[in-house]
Amino acid sequence: MNRLRLAVIGFVVLATAILAGHGAMAGDGRPALPQAKGSVCVEDTQVMRRNHMDLLKHQRNDTLRQGVRGGKHSLAECVSCHATDGADGKPVPVTAEGQFCQSCHSFAAVSIDCFSCHATVPADPARTAIR
């Protein structure tokens, strides 16, 4: 266990050093995250950081199996706030390099399969309108 902890600390220090060298750090050991839309998240930021995976899994069961809509922890909603607009004005997928979900997960060595199915960009208002 101690050796594991040492390895983790070592890894974090190393990663910090490398990332800092690239100027990509927020300064507290985590990658800089793109600015989200709006001013607050659906829960307290600390809660989101720690528990977003559990909130999402809970929401997905509620929505899919029970049919609960308009849930606070909707994945589609995360995307609509956390996807940024690229230089061309088009939304950038949240899974793209350096984007909100991706950058943090690659830092934490987490891989999620959600976006092999779920849309990675918010609804296009223009397209939704013509339907």
């Binding site: 974090v12 927020a26 300064g27 507290d28 050991g29 985590r30 607050v40 307290d44 930021t45 600390q46 950081r49 720690r50 934490a108």
Partner: peptide, 10 residues
Amino acid sequence: FLQGTAVAAV
């Protein structure tokens, strides 16, 4: 690492 200290809880 998610319990980082920098951002105050709002």
